[in-house]
Design a protein around this nucleic acid. Sequence first.
DNA 1: CTGCCTAGAGAAAGTGACTGTCTCAATGGA
DNA 2: TCCATTGAGACAGTCACTTTCTCTAGGCAG
Lengths: 209, 209
Amino acid sequence: MSGLRERWRLKAMHTIQERALDLFDEKGFAAVTIEEIAAAAEVSPSSVYRLFGTKEGILVADEFDRMSPEALKDFLGSGDPIDSLLRAVRAYEAAAKGSSEPEDAGEGPRFKKSPWRRVRYFFAEPSVRVAVCANLDRAGRRIAPLIAATGELTETQARVVANALVFGYFAALEQWYLDGGSRPIADYVEEGMRPLRGIWRSSDQEDSA
Amino acid sequence: MSGLRERWRLKAMHTIQERALDLFDEKGFAAVTIEEIAAAAEVSPSSVYRLFGTKEGILVADEFDRMSPEALKDFLGSGDPIDSLLRAVRAYEAAAKGSSEPEDAGEGPRFKKSPWRRVRYFFAEPSVRVAVCANLDRAGRRIAPLIAATGELTETQARVVANALVFGYFAALEQWYLDGGSRPIADYVEEGMRPLRGIWRSSDQEDSA
DNA sequence: CTGCCTAGAGAAAGTGACTGTCTCAATGGA
DNA sequence: TCCATTGAGACAGTCACTTTCTCTAGGCAG
């Protein structure tokens, strides 16, 4: 598994993301070229494209994407998907508070920024927002079969509900962003998704684990 | 109002869309350049960009976008938004059956194609799909305030529900596409959105017009 | 009907994101 | 230790999209 190749890959991705974020914060997203980012991260432009695909991909690359179908099934398998989502958001926020990698302490007096720093660009930069939507769309297509597999909903309904979940989460995240990010995101998700709970409440009594 | 300038604009947009669709069907979306489209439509490339913004915009340009806030309010104002959506879809399908402009009869033996021909690209061409998602996202942001204005939901919930509506519609449309487009889209929307009806059923008894 | 005046269509050059292809070094296995 | 393969870098090319300028022709006085 984790050979040197894989290590290089992970380290490079992390470095590129950090340096790119620094540059974006400094000059604005549009004013930064891939070549600058590559130079700042000391890799070739080709590598940036190989690792992230697009400029926006640097910001929206998400561990959610590379989650295996099995892990996703575990994640969504038990009970109300909204509760699963809430658990994931809370876990993410808790991990973010503890943050971040200890090994970058040897690189100078750089302030530790919140891992949510990049989220700003999700809403501030239109092209990034589009990329986020594309990601959510892919996520919806991945979880729809899992929702359909429970047998409670038709395939069409499973697709609709999957999109309602992922883009509903996005809407809650936007409200969190617009409010300045003071309260926890999970609060927004919990409140925002409440109207959707009826989907499972109504027909889930047979399986209320 | 409809001066010659506006007439030129509408006619040019229509011509560009038709010619572009012809070229896409013939050579594939990626293999067609904006210059080719402009040449085929006998306008300048600049005009294509001025009228549609992007290459994908030629396919996803939607009257929904330029709908005024007032018209949107009329459209969504009365009762269950899902019913409003269904009404709109049914009206669109009925109009599509009657189809299309009589004045293009003088242009040669070209087959009348369904106005849904372009929908194929929504799902077959990734970059177009992304553009559609971006459009739906914008639509969601436009209708969220209208949903919030009813006062039944908080702002966050209104945003979530708005996204659930527009991307739920998209999911239903995809199922329709995957099934080959035989049955009416409205059927898919009606079936797919049924789990979401609880949102209004539960608290809408005061206003069941 | 005539003449200004401005919106807007076209022309053209530039930018940079992204895509191939090739080479070569380094890796991991025999 | 040697070999096959993976993958990083270099490089050239394409084309979507932007910006700027010019100049025509529509819109609107008078």
